[in-house]
């Protein structure tokens, strides 16, 4: 059965008189990786929050998204200081699967982000990058169909970032989740995004969409952005 596409139709949203989104439309193909790429503070996070159901748009329609089981990787890690690395990854899992299965699953994801030795540590004992890896492991472990990421890799050093990006793509190839991620990092966008949505400043609007076939445009992006 062909999954329904996830659509934002004519979305508008303003905060205190400032228009962030106006008549914004976007279609996301299930099982694809879509990148929202644009300058910091242009409203990408607002858009992501609307997809995640955290924010309700002032007008417009959101279809497909609300039915999805969502994982979220936040800009700030939002991992719980009173739970260990393992406890944090288990947190969203324990209601959804038998204990042993949850444990195996959580441990596999912790291994994937390279924190198996730190599994019993508390976030206060971890570096900023490690905390972000915990948050990534938690999102991957959650049995959702949609992953929303908000500048998730920005606090990681380059080597680690590519390690995690590689692991991410491997996992993604296997389970084919729909991914929407927001970034202002061009390398991330080019590395992961099958569909790269270039967005401009307030109100947020799409300046271009680059698909997988657009190798030329992708290459053209590099000198322009550098």
């Amino acid at each position: 059965m062909e999954a329904m596409s996830l659509d934002l139709i004519n979305i508008s949203k303003s905060f205190g008189g400032r228009t962030i989104l106006e008549g914004f439309s976007l279609s996301v193909r299930p099982g694809s990786v879509t990148c929202l790429f644009g300058p910091s503070g242009c409203g990408k996070t607002t858009l992501l929050n609307i997809m995640g159901g955290i924010l309700v748009p002032d007008s417009g329609m959101v279809t497909g998204f609300p039915e999805e089981q969502k994982s979220y990787i936040f800009q700030e890690t939002r991992i719980l200081p009173w739970k260990t690395v393992l406890g944090n990854v288990l947190f969203p899992l324990v209601d959804r699967m038998p204990r042993q299965e949850a444990l195996d699953h959580a441990r596999a994801m912790i291994r994937m982000v390279g924190l198996e030795k730190e599994e019993k540590l508390y976030p206060g004992q971890l570096s900023g990058g490690m905390k972000q890896r915990v948050s990534i492991a938690r999102a991957f472990a959650f049995p959702g169909t949609l992953i929303l990421m908000d500048e998730a890799f920005q606090n990681l050093d380059k080597t680690l970032k590519y390690n995690i990006l590689n692991s991410f793509m491997e996992i993604w190839k296997k389970d084919g989740r729909t991914v929407v991620f927001v970034t202002h990092d061009m390398e991330e966008a080019l590395y992961m995004g099958q569909q790269i949505v270039l967005v401009d400043d307030r109100p947020l609007r799409i300046s271009r969409i680059l698909g997988e076939g657009d190798e030329k445009s992708r290459e053209a992006l590099i000198p322009k952005q550098l």
């Binding site: 089981q69 939002r78 209601d95 959650f142």
Partner: peptide, 16 residues
């Protein structure tokens, strides 16, 4: 509040 929001996004129960 961002912890509560995170938990709600992951559909964690109110009692938890």
């Amino acid at each position: 509040p961002s912890f509560i929001q995170m938990a709600r996004l992951y559909a964690v129960s109110d009692s938890r």
